[in-house]
Design a protein around this nucleic acid. Sequence first.
DNA 1: ATCCGGAGTTACCGGTCAGTAACATAGGTG
DNA 2: CACCTATGTTACTGACCGGTAACTCCGGAT
Lengths: 203, 203
Amino acid sequence: MTGTINRPTDIPQPPPRDRILSAARKLFYRHGIRAVGVDAIAEAAATNKMTLYRHFGSKDELIAAYLTELAREGDEVWEKLAEEHPNDPRAQLEGWIVFVEQILTDGSDRGCAIANAAVELREIGHPARQIIDAYKTRKRERLVTMFRDAGYAEPEQLADEVFLLFEGARISLQCCSNGPAQRVVKMLRSMLAEHAPPSSTII
Amino acid sequence: MTGTINRPTDIPQPPPRDRILSAARKLFYRHGIRAVGVDAIAEAAATNKMTLYRHFGSKDELIAAYLTELAREGDEVWEKLAEEHPNDPRAQLEGWIVFVEQILTDGSDRGCAIANAAVELREIGHPARQIIDAYKTRKRERLVTMFRDAGYAEPEQLADEVFLLFEGARISLQCCSNGPAQRVVKMLRSMLAEHAPPSSTII
DNA sequence: ATCCGGAGTTACCGGTCAGTAACATAGGTG
DNA sequence: CACCTATGTTACTGACCGGTAACTCCGGAT
Protein backbone atom coordinates (compact mmCIF):
# COMPACT_ATOMS: atom_id res chain seq x y z
CA MET A 1 0.00 0.00 0.00
CA THR A 2 2.97 2.32 -0.11
CA GLY A 3 2.08 3.51 -3.59
CA THR A 4 -1.28 5.06 -2.78
CA ILE A 5 -0.20 8.57 -3.55
CA ASN A 6 -3.62 10.17 -3.62
CA ARG A 7 -4.22 9.69 -7.32
CA PRO A 8 -7.82 8.57 -7.36
CA THR A 9 -8.87 10.16 -10.62
CA ASP A 10 -5.70 10.11 -12.58
CA ILE A 11 -7.62 10.82 -15.76
CA PRO A 12 -5.75 8.36 -17.93
CA GLN A 13 -7.88 9.52 -20.83
CA PRO A 14 -9.70 12.67 -21.89
CA PRO A 15 -13.44 13.02 -21.31
CA PRO A 16 -15.69 10.98 -23.57
CA ARG A 17 -16.84 13.88 -25.68
CA ASP A 18 -13.29 14.63 -26.72
CA ARG A 19 -12.59 10.98 -27.37
CA ILE A 20 -15.68 10.68 -29.54
CA LEU A 21 -14.83 13.77 -31.56
CA SER A 22 -11.26 12.60 -31.94
CA ALA A 23 -12.32 9.15 -33.09
CA ALA A 24 -14.89 10.58 -35.47
CA ARG A 25 -12.26 12.83 -36.90
CA LYS A 26 -9.85 10.02 -37.58
CA LEU A 27 -12.44 7.67 -39.05
CA PHE A 28 -14.32 10.27 -41.05
CA TYR A 29 -11.14 11.50 -42.64
CA ARG A 30 -9.70 8.09 -43.32
CA HIS A 31 -12.74 6.26 -44.65
CA GLY A 32 -15.22 8.99 -45.45
CA ILE A 33 -18.19 10.29 -43.53
CA ARG A 34 -20.87 8.07 -44.99
CA ALA A 35 -18.67 5.01 -44.75
CA VAL A 36 -18.36 5.23 -40.98
CA GLY A 37 -21.18 4.30 -38.63
CA VAL A 38 -21.77 5.66 -35.18
CA ASP A 39 -21.07 2.25 -33.65
CA ALA A 40 -17.60 2.24 -35.11
CA ILE A 41 -16.95 5.73 -33.79
CA ALA A 42 -18.15 4.86 -30.31
CA GLU A 43 -16.01 1.76 -30.26
CA ALA A 44 -12.93 3.63 -31.49
CA ALA A 45 -13.57 6.19 -28.78
CA ALA A 46 -13.57 3.44 -26.15
CA THR A 47 -17.14 4.24 -25.21
CA ASN A 48 -20.60 3.32 -26.44
CA LYS A 49 -23.33 4.59 -28.65
CA MET A 50 -25.50 5.92 -25.80
CA THR A 51 -22.78 8.23 -24.56
CA LEU A 52 -22.22 9.40 -28.10
CA TYR A 53 -25.87 10.28 -28.45
CA ARG A 54 -25.90 12.07 -25.09
CA HIS A 55 -23.22 14.45 -26.35
CA PHE A 56 -24.30 14.67 -29.97
CA GLY A 57 -27.99 14.39 -30.63
CA SER A 58 -27.53 12.78 -34.00
CA LYS A 59 -24.90 11.72 -36.47
CA ASP A 60 -25.48 14.93 -38.40
CA GLU A 61 -24.76 16.93 -35.27
CA LEU A 62 -21.58 14.98 -34.78
CA ILE A 63 -20.62 15.70 -38.38
CA ALA A 64 -21.31 19.38 -37.82
CA ALA A 65 -19.17 19.39 -34.69
CA TYR A 66 -16.44 17.57 -36.58
CA LEU A 67 -16.47 20.15 -39.35
CA THR A 68 -16.67 23.03 -36.91
CA GLU A 69 -13.56 21.77 -35.18
CA LEU A 70 -11.75 21.41 -38.48
CA ALA A 71 -12.74 24.89 -39.55
CA ARG A 72 -11.57 26.33 -36.24
CA GLU A 73 -8.19 24.69 -36.60
CA GLY A 74 -7.97 25.94 -40.15
CA ASP A 75 -8.64 29.44 -38.93
CA GLU A 76 -6.04 29.05 -36.19
CA VAL A 77 -3.38 28.44 -38.80
CA TRP A 78 -3.97 31.94 -40.10
CA GLU A 79 -4.15 33.47 -36.66
CA LYS A 80 -0.90 31.84 -35.70
CA LEU A 81 0.73 33.12 -38.88
CA ALA A 82 -0.48 36.61 -38.05
CA GLU A 83 0.86 36.60 -34.52
CA GLU A 84 4.15 34.94 -35.46
CA HIS A 85 4.85 37.63 -38.02
CA PRO A 86 2.99 40.71 -36.83
CA ASN A 87 2.84 43.50 -39.36
CA ASP A 88 4.86 41.44 -41.79
CA PRO A 89 2.48 40.13 -44.44
CA ARG A 90 5.34 38.98 -46.64
CA ALA A 91 6.61 36.72 -43.88
CA GLN A 92 3.07 35.51 -43.25
CA LEU A 93 2.79 34.62 -46.90
CA GLU A 94 6.07 32.77 -46.79
CA GLY A 95 4.89 30.93 -43.69
CA TRP A 96 1.71 29.94 -45.43
CA ILE A 97 3.61 28.55 -48.39
CA VAL A 98 5.73 26.45 -46.07
CA PHE A 99 2.55 25.22 -44.45
CA VAL A 100 1.12 24.31 -47.85
CA GLU A 101 4.30 22.51 -48.74
CA GLN A 102 4.12 20.44 -45.57
CA ILE A 103 0.60 19.34 -46.33
CA LEU A 104 1.19 18.42 -49.95
CA THR A 105 4.40 16.52 -49.34
CA ASP A 106 3.12 14.80 -46.23
CA GLY A 107 2.38 11.62 -48.13
CA SER A 108 -0.64 10.78 -46.01
CA ASP A 109 -2.82 13.60 -47.22
CA ARG A 110 -6.28 12.55 -48.24
CA GLY A 111 -7.35 15.97 -49.34
CA CYS A 112 -9.10 18.73 -47.51
CA ALA A 113 -11.47 17.07 -45.07
CA ILE A 114 -13.90 19.94 -45.45
CA ALA A 115 -13.94 19.73 -49.23
CA ASN A 116 -14.37 15.98 -48.98
CA ALA A 117 -17.35 16.53 -46.73
CA ALA A 118 -18.82 18.83 -49.35
CA VAL A 119 -18.60 16.01 -51.86
CA GLU A 120 -20.18 13.49 -49.54
CA LEU A 121 -22.94 15.63 -48.07
CA ARG A 122 -24.95 16.99 -50.95
CA GLU A 123 -28.36 17.35 -49.34
CA ILE A 124 -29.28 20.98 -49.75
CA GLY A 125 -30.38 21.61 -46.17
CA HIS A 126 -27.61 19.72 -44.45
CA PRO A 127 -26.17 21.63 -41.47
CA ALA A 128 -22.69 20.89 -42.72
CA ARG A 129 -23.09 22.86 -45.90
CA GLN A 130 -23.09 26.32 -44.36
CA ILE A 131 -20.07 25.44 -42.25
CA ILE A 132 -18.24 24.34 -45.36
CA ASP A 133 -19.28 27.33 -47.42
CA ALA A 134 -18.42 29.82 -44.68
CA TYR A 135 -15.01 28.29 -44.10
CA LYS A 136 -13.97 28.22 -47.73
CA THR A 137 -15.23 31.74 -48.31
CA ARG A 138 -13.33 32.92 -45.23
CA LYS A 139 -10.20 31.20 -46.43
CA ARG A 140 -10.40 32.87 -49.81
CA GLU A 141 -10.86 36.26 -48.18
CA ARG A 142 -7.86 35.68 -45.96
CA LEU A 143 -5.79 35.03 -49.05
CA VAL A 144 -7.03 38.23 -50.65
CA THR A 145 -6.18 40.22 -47.54
CA MET A 146 -2.78 38.65 -47.30
CA PHE A 147 -1.88 39.46 -50.90
CA ARG A 148 -3.26 42.96 -50.58
CA ASP A 149 -1.31 43.60 -47.37
CA ALA A 150 1.78 42.15 -48.98
CA GLY A 151 1.46 44.80 -51.65
CA TYR A 152 0.55 42.67 -54.61
CA ALA A 153 -1.36 44.26 -57.41
CA GLU A 154 -4.75 42.71 -58.13
CA PRO A 155 -4.80 40.70 -54.90
CA GLU A 156 -8.19 39.20 -55.64
CA GLN A 157 -7.21 37.62 -58.89
CA LEU A 158 -4.00 36.37 -57.40
CA ALA A 159 -5.81 34.98 -54.38
CA ASP A 160 -8.34 33.19 -56.55
CA GLU A 161 -5.61 31.66 -58.60
CA VAL A 162 -3.68 30.48 -55.57
CA PHE A 163 -6.85 29.26 -53.93
CA LEU A 164 -7.85 27.13 -56.91
CA LEU A 165 -4.33 25.84 -57.35
CA PHE A 166 -4.24 24.65 -53.76
CA GLU A 167 -7.70 23.14 -53.84
CA GLY A 168 -6.86 21.40 -57.09
CA ALA A 169 -3.66 20.03 -55.63
CA ARG A 170 -5.41 18.51 -52.66
CA ILE A 171 -8.14 16.86 -54.68
CA SER A 172 -5.60 15.62 -57.20
CA LEU A 173 -3.68 13.84 -54.51
CA GLN A 174 -6.65 11.54 -54.19
CA CYS A 175 -7.17 11.08 -57.91
CA CYS A 176 -3.88 10.52 -59.62
CA SER A 177 -0.80 8.99 -58.21
CA ASN A 178 2.35 10.91 -58.94
CA GLY A 179 0.16 13.79 -59.88
CA PRO A 180 1.02 17.38 -60.52
CA ALA A 181 0.37 18.35 -56.92
CA GLN A 182 4.01 17.95 -56.01
CA ARG A 183 4.96 20.93 -58.10
CA VAL A 184 2.42 23.33 -56.73
CA VAL A 185 4.85 25.00 -54.35
CA LYS A 186 7.24 25.79 -57.17
CA MET A 187 4.29 27.13 -59.11
CA LEU A 188 3.32 29.36 -56.23
CA ARG A 189 6.80 30.77 -55.87
CA SER A 190 7.27 31.50 -59.54
CA MET A 191 3.80 32.94 -59.74
CA LEU A 192 4.47 35.26 -56.84
CA ALA A 193 7.81 36.21 -58.33
CA GLU A 194 6.11 37.18 -61.55
CA HIS A 195 3.47 39.27 -59.86
CA ALA A 196 5.92 40.64 -57.35
CA PRO A 197 4.70 43.80 -55.65
CA PRO A 198 6.11 46.98 -57.17
CA SER A 199 7.56 48.25 -53.91
CA SER A 200 9.60 45.44 -52.41
CA THR A 201 11.68 47.88 -50.40
CA ILE A 202 12.57 46.83 -46.89
CA ILE A 203 11.65 49.79 -44.70
CA MET B 1 -57.62 0.49 -86.14
CA THR B 2 -56.09 2.43 -88.95
CA GLY B 3 -52.97 3.05 -86.96
CA THR B 4 -51.79 -0.55 -86.64
CA ILE B 5 -48.75 -0.05 -88.76
CA ASN B 6 -46.92 -3.23 -87.89
CA ARG B 7 -44.99 -1.85 -84.97
CA PRO B 8 -45.06 -4.72 -82.54
CA THR B 9 -41.68 -4.13 -80.92
CA ASP B 10 -41.36 -0.44 -81.32
CA ILE B 11 -38.66 -0.33 -78.66
CA PRO B 12 -40.03 2.69 -76.84
CA GLN B 13 -37.03 2.46 -74.52
CA PRO B 14 -33.41 1.33 -74.72
CA PRO B 15 -32.38 -2.08 -73.39
CA PRO B 16 -32.34 -2.50 -69.62
CA ARG B 17 -28.58 -2.41 -69.28
CA ASP B 18 -28.45 1.04 -70.84
CA ARG B 19 -31.33 2.23 -68.72
CA ILE B 20 -29.66 1.00 -65.56
CA LEU B 21 -26.36 2.62 -66.41
CA SER B 22 -28.11 5.84 -67.31
CA ALA B 23 -30.10 5.87 -64.09
CA ALA B 24 -27.03 5.05 -62.03
CA ARG B 25 -25.21 7.86 -63.70
CA LYS B 26 -27.86 10.40 -62.89
CA LEU B 27 -28.35 9.31 -59.30
CA PHE B 28 -24.69 8.74 -58.50
CA TYR B 29 -23.78 12.16 -59.77
CA ARG B 30 -26.64 13.96 -58.11
CA HIS B 31 -26.65 12.36 -54.69
CA GLY B 32 -23.32 10.62 -54.45
CA ILE B 33 -22.38 6.99 -54.94
CA ARG B 34 -22.71 5.82 -51.37
CA ALA B 35 -25.98 7.67 -50.91
CA VAL B 36 -27.76 5.76 -53.66
CA GLY B 37 -28.90 2.17 -53.23
CA VAL B 38 -29.32 -0.39 -55.95
CA ASP B 39 -33.09 -0.47 -55.40
CA ALA B 40 -33.33 3.22 -56.20
CA ILE B 41 -31.28 2.74 -59.35
CA ALA B 42 -33.38 -0.17 -60.53
CA GLU B 43 -36.55 1.77 -59.92
CA ALA B 44 -35.26 4.83 -61.73
CA ALA B 45 -34.32 2.58 -64.63
CA ALA B 46 -37.89 1.26 -64.80
CA THR B 47 -36.70 -2.23 -64.05
CA ASN B 48 -35.89 -4.28 -60.97
CA LYS B 49 -32.97 -5.33 -58.84
CA MET B 50 -32.70 -8.80 -60.34
CA THR B 51 -32.12 -7.50 -63.82
CA LEU B 52 -29.59 -5.08 -62.45
CA TYR B 53 -27.67 -7.90 -60.84
CA ARG B 54 -27.84 -9.99 -64.01
CA HIS B 55 -26.00 -7.26 -65.90
CA PHE B 56 -23.74 -6.08 -63.14
CA GLY B 57 -22.62 -8.68 -60.65
CA SER B 58 -22.41 -6.24 -57.78
CA LYS B 59 -22.78 -2.61 -56.92
CA ASP B 60 -19.04 -2.19 -57.18
CA GLU B 61 -19.13 -3.55 -60.72
CA LEU B 62 -21.88 -1.10 -61.56
CA ILE B 63 -19.79 1.69 -60.11
CA ALA B 64 -16.84 0.57 -62.19
CA ALA B 65 -18.98 0.50 -65.33
CA TYR B 66 -20.30 3.95 -64.45
CA LEU B 67 -16.81 5.35 -64.10
CA THR B 68 -15.60 3.58 -67.21
CA GLU B 69 -18.36 5.21 -69.19
CA LEU B 70 -17.54 8.61 -67.76
CA ALA B 71 -13.88 8.17 -68.53
CA ARG B 72 -14.64 7.13 -72.09
CA GLU B 73 -16.78 10.21 -72.63
CA GLY B 74 -14.07 12.34 -71.15
CA ASP B 75 -11.61 10.86 -73.60
CA GLU B 76 -14.01 11.44 -76.44
CA VAL B 77 -13.97 15.16 -75.75
CA TRP B 78 -10.29 15.18 -76.58
CA GLU B 79 -10.69 12.95 -79.60
CA LYS B 80 -13.42 15.17 -80.92
CA LEU B 81 -11.25 18.25 -80.42
CA ALA B 82 -8.47 16.55 -82.32
CA GLU B 83 -10.61 15.63 -85.29
CA GLU B 84 -12.42 18.94 -85.39
CA HIS B 85 -9.14 20.81 -85.60
CA PRO B 86 -6.67 18.40 -87.19
CA ASN B 87 -3.08 19.55 -87.07
CA ASP B 88 -4.14 22.73 -85.33
CA PRO B 89 -3.24 22.39 -81.66
CA ARG B 90 -3.91 26.07 -81.03
CA ALA B 91 -7.49 25.67 -82.17
CA GLN B 92 -7.78 22.50 -80.09
CA LEU B 93 -6.62 24.43 -77.07
CA GLU B 94 -9.12 27.16 -77.73
CA GLY B 95 -11.83 24.55 -78.12
CA TRP B 96 -10.89 23.01 -74.82
CA ILE B 97 -11.09 26.36 -73.06
CA VAL B 98 -14.57 26.92 -74.46
CA PHE B 99 -15.49 23.47 -73.20
CA VAL B 100 -14.14 24.32 -69.76
CA GLU B 101 -16.07 27.54 -69.74
CA GLN B 102 -19.28 25.73 -70.54
CA ILE B 103 -18.81 23.35 -67.65
CA LEU B 104 -17.94 25.95 -65.08
CA THR B 105 -20.69 28.37 -65.99
CA ASP B 106 -23.30 25.67 -66.41
CA GLY B 107 -24.76 26.37 -63.00
CA SER B 108 -25.65 22.76 -62.37
CA ASP B 109 -22.13 21.47 -62.11
CA ARG B 110 -21.51 19.27 -59.12
CA GLY B 111 -17.84 18.81 -59.81
CA CYS B 112 -15.99 16.14 -61.68
CA ALA B 113 -17.91 12.91 -61.15
CA ILE B 114 -14.69 10.95 -61.29
CA ALA B 115 -12.98 13.10 -58.70
CA ASN B 116 -16.06 12.86 -56.52
CA ALA B 117 -15.89 9.10 -56.79
CA ALA B 118 -12.28 9.23 -55.64
CA VAL B 119 -13.42 11.05 -52.52
CA GLU B 120 -16.19 8.60 -51.80
CA LEU B 121 -14.39 5.35 -52.58
CA ARG B 122 -11.26 5.27 -50.48
CA GLU B 123 -10.81 1.54 -50.03
CA ILE B 124 -7.38 0.77 -51.36
CA GLY B 125 -8.33 -2.23 -53.48
CA HIS B 126 -11.53 -0.81 -54.92
CA PRO B 127 -11.84 -1.48 -58.66
CA ALA B 128 -12.80 2.15 -59.18
CA ARG B 129 -9.48 3.50 -58.03
CA GLN B 130 -7.41 2.38 -61.00
CA ILE B 131 -10.03 3.70 -63.40
CA ILE B 132 -9.89 7.05 -61.67
CA ASP B 133 -6.12 7.18 -61.50
CA ALA B 134 -5.70 6.14 -65.11
CA TYR B 135 -8.19 8.70 -66.36
CA LYS B 136 -6.73 11.63 -64.49
CA THR B 137 -3.21 10.69 -65.47
CA ARG B 138 -4.31 10.39 -69.08
CA LYS B 139 -5.99 13.76 -68.92
CA ARG B 140 -2.90 15.42 -67.58
CA GLU B 141 -0.79 13.88 -70.32
CA ARG B 142 -3.23 15.10 -72.95
CA LEU B 143 -2.80 18.61 -71.60
CA VAL B 144 0.97 18.29 -71.75
CA THR B 145 0.82 17.07 -75.34
CA MET B 146 -1.55 19.82 -76.31
CA PHE B 147 0.65 22.55 -74.89
CA ARG B 148 3.74 21.01 -76.39
CA ASP B 149 2.12 20.74 -79.82
CA ALA B 150 0.88 24.29 -79.51
CA GLY B 151 4.47 25.37 -79.11
CA TYR B 152 4.45 26.45 -75.50
CA ALA B 153 7.70 26.37 -73.62
CA GLU B 154 7.73 24.12 -70.57
CA PRO B 155 4.49 22.38 -71.51
CA GLU B 156 4.57 20.11 -68.48
CA GLN B 157 4.63 22.91 -65.96
CA LEU B 158 1.95 24.75 -67.83
CA ALA B 159 -0.18 21.63 -68.10
CA ASP B 160 0.15 20.93 -64.39
CA GLU B 161 -0.86 24.45 -63.56
CA VAL B 162 -3.89 24.37 -65.83
CA PHE B 163 -4.81 20.92 -64.61
CA LEU B 164 -4.78 21.97 -60.98
CA LEU B 165 -6.65 25.17 -61.70
CA PHE B 166 -9.42 23.28 -63.42
CA GLU B 167 -9.64 20.59 -60.76
CA GLY B 168 -9.68 23.25 -58.08
CA ALA B 169 -12.42 25.14 -59.84
CA ARG B 170 -14.67 22.12 -60.04
CA ILE B 171 -14.24 21.14 -56.42
CA SER B 172 -14.69 24.75 -55.33
CA LEU B 173 -18.04 24.92 -57.04
CA GLN B 174 -19.24 22.45 -54.44
CA CYS B 175 -17.61 24.17 -51.49
CA CYS B 176 -18.12 27.86 -51.68
CA SER B 177 -20.96 29.72 -53.25
CA ASN B 178 -19.90 32.56 -55.47
CA GLY B 179 -16.47 31.07 -55.44
CA PRO B 180 -13.45 31.94 -57.50
CA ALA B 181 -14.27 29.28 -60.08
CA GLN B 182 -16.07 31.78 -62.29
CA ARG B 183 -12.85 33.54 -63.07
CA VAL B 184 -10.86 30.50 -64.06
CA VAL B 185 -11.37 31.01 -67.79
CA LYS B 186 -9.97 34.53 -67.60
CA MET B 187 -7.08 33.13 -65.62
CA LEU B 188 -6.43 30.55 -68.28
CA ARG B 189 -6.44 33.10 -71.06
CA SER B 190 -4.13 35.52 -69.33
CA MET B 191 -1.87 32.68 -68.28
CA LEU B 192 -1.61 31.43 -71.82
CA ALA B 193 -1.03 34.94 -73.08
CA GLU B 194 1.88 35.32 -70.68
CA HIS B 195 3.48 32.05 -71.66
CA ALA B 196 2.65 32.53 -75.28
CA PRO B 197 4.71 30.37 -77.60
CA PRO B 198 7.69 32.14 -79.13
CA SER B 199 6.62 31.42 -82.70
CA SER B 200 3.03 32.49 -83.06
CA THR B 201 3.41 32.88 -86.76
CA ILE B 202 0.54 31.74 -88.92
CA ILE B 203 1.89 29.36 -91.54
C1' DA C 1 -25.20 8.40 4.23
C1' DT C 2 -27.68 10.17 0.64
C1' DC C 3 -28.32 11.85 -3.59
C1' DC C 4 -27.46 12.88 -8.28
C1' DG C 5 -25.53 13.35 -12.79
C1' DG C 6 -22.48 11.42 -16.10
C1' DA C 7 -21.03 7.26 -17.98
C1' DG C 8 -21.38 2.36 -19.25
C1' DT C 9 -24.17 -1.84 -20.61
C1' DT C 10 -27.54 -4.53 -22.97
C1' DA C 11 -31.12 -5.07 -25.73
C1' DC C 12 -34.04 -3.53 -28.78
C1' DC C 13 -36.63 -0.77 -32.74
C1' DG C 14 -37.84 0.04 -37.63
C1' DG C 15 -35.63 0.83 -41.75
C1' DT C 16 -32.45 0.09 -45.36
C1' DC C 17 -28.59 -2.07 -47.29
C1' DA C 18 -26.48 -5.45 -50.89
C1' DG C 19 -27.45 -9.68 -52.70
C1' DT C 20 -30.22 -14.16 -53.81
C1' DA C 21 -33.81 -17.84 -54.76
C1' DA C 22 -37.82 -19.29 -57.08
C1' DC C 23 -41.01 -18.56 -60.29
C1' DA C 24 -43.74 -16.36 -63.98
C1' DT C 25 -43.74 -14.18 -68.42
C1' DA C 26 -42.64 -12.77 -72.47
C1' DG C 27 -40.18 -12.99 -77.45
C1' DG C 28 -37.62 -15.04 -80.78
C1' DT C 29 -35.69 -19.26 -83.08
C1' DG C 30 -35.30 -24.06 -84.42
C1' DC D 1 -44.79 -26.75 -81.76
C1' DA D 2 -41.05 -26.87 -78.30
C1' DC D 3 -37.19 -24.48 -76.71
C1' DC D 4 -34.32 -20.96 -74.91
C1' DT D 5 -32.92 -16.68 -73.32
C1' DA D 6 -33.87 -12.22 -71.37
C1' DT D 7 -36.78 -9.93 -68.47
C1' DG D 8 -40.04 -9.12 -64.76
C1' DT D 9 -42.04 -10.14 -60.03
C1' DT D 10 -42.15 -11.38 -55.30
C1' DA D 11 -40.21 -12.63 -51.33
C1' DC D 12 -36.55 -13.38 -48.75
C1' DT D 13 -31.78 -13.33 -46.21
C1' DG D 14 -28.41 -11.46 -43.01
C1' DA D 15 -26.09 -7.58 -42.00
C1' DC D 16 -25.88 -3.00 -40.80
C1' DC D 17 -27.83 1.56 -40.24
C1' DG D 18 -29.26 5.54 -36.99
C1' DG D 19 -31.55 6.00 -32.85
C1' DT D 20 -33.84 4.75 -28.23
C1' DA D 21 -35.30 2.53 -23.67
C1' DA D 22 -34.21 0.75 -19.33
C1' DC D 23 -31.03 -0.27 -16.36
C1' DT D 24 -26.60 -0.35 -13.68
C1' DC D 25 -22.58 1.72 -11.94
C1' DC D 26 -19.49 5.09 -9.93
C1' DG D 27 -17.59 9.36 -8.19
C1' DG D 28 -18.27 13.60 -6.35
C1' DA D 29 -21.07 16.99 -3.73
C1' DT D 30 -24.21 18.02 0.08
